[in-house]
Design a protein around this nucleic acid. Sequence first.
DNA 1: AGGGATGTAAACATCA
DNA 2: TTGATGTTTACATCCC
Length: 426
Amino acid sequence: MGPIIGMSPDKKAETPGMQGERVGLRGLCGGVGTLPEAECGAASPLATSLDRGSVGSGGSEDEELTNLNWLHENLLQNFTLGGAGGAQPSASPLFDIEGDTGAPQNPPSSSLSQRDSLKSKPPFSFSLLIYMAIEQSPSKSLPVKDIYGWIVQNFPYFSSAPTGWKNSVRHNLSLNKCFRKVERSLGKLNGKGSLWCVDPEYRPNLIQALKKQHFPAAHAFCTPPASPPPASPPPASSPHRHLFLQGCSLKESDIDAATAMMLLNAAPGHHHANPCDPESPLDLSRPDLVLVSSDPNQDHNYSSMALQCCSSRSSSSSSSLDDGGPSPGHARHRPRTCRAGSEGFHSDEEDSDLWDRDERRHAPRCCSSSSVKHPAGKRARREVTANPELDEELKEAAGSLLHLAGIRTSIDLKKRSAKSKKLNRK
DNA sequence: AGGGATGTAAACATCA
DNA sequence: TTGATGTTTACATCCC
């Protein structure tokens, strides 16, 4: 997975639409400062989205379009609606967590071929699938079962696939540092297992991974007319990706926007509250969450730390979603901190910058890590940095969205040509 | 060629 | 007891 470059944190402030949506979600959940599912369990995406009944209504074997279509249909449309329409409920079933809004405006089954395409194996890694599932959930946390459900719903391929993929999902959840286990609240004792959320610290990794999964080939295959075609062969790094994109007729803007959606939806600066933090509801509207550090050292610290740990493969696209630690063994089999229960469900903010990876790895699984903690909001502060790279990405994302809306910005054009040049060089 | 990422399978433990 | 969940290990494959 990719070296992850954190995103500009200003998303919240800059995307009122999303904010409105979040606010809407928050309002739906009704609760603030409570465990995600404890309050929003009824609003579980699964509870609503699975009801849409598009699962397994399979068809032919369109192997290619699957996921961009899916991404486009579900993420982009939602986002654009949410962004342009303010707090309009999403048209996407994925985001239709209002629950009872009836048939989605753009049901996945609206297009036969599209639906059919959903029967193919997604080109996303399990990490990304899990990430998307979690991110699509209103509470930003899901039990394993709901993750299964989300995957099955959105990728019916898995509904008929051998159940080994579930093992893979669990394996990923356990193994991947990007995901954190969150014990269900005491008030939600029914139901087995824990909630899983995305570790905000690693969210950029996942975003980057998602981006990398689309961008290179997207540029190769879907180069916009404004840009010269890449001279080199498409850098599709895998046959699967290649296949997947070969039939892709999506415009680059679609792909960009898809990524943009994810970027914006999941940027570190996004500041939807940490689902792992009982004190931190999904409240994007809280201006106090946007802590902008004026300390360049902090910024650099964060940036360098994040970039270092996230780009262990020298900004190639394949650094681990794990922290990119030096030791594979360590990276892969890190002891997971137990954010368990009401008490163990500690905020990510408590994770320490100084608590380096090794310490983290060697920390006891169930940490009453009160001794090594950060003051709350430190992460938020450090993530809201003036990292120009993040800024660029955010601009790019915004440009993509504008482009999707038919508005081509100068930034957009510049970025695209720059991208094309970059690709040509490669 | 080697390392890393990813996928898959399996064993095992825990818990409802 | 059973099934779901979670962890860990091992191995294969692909890509850089």
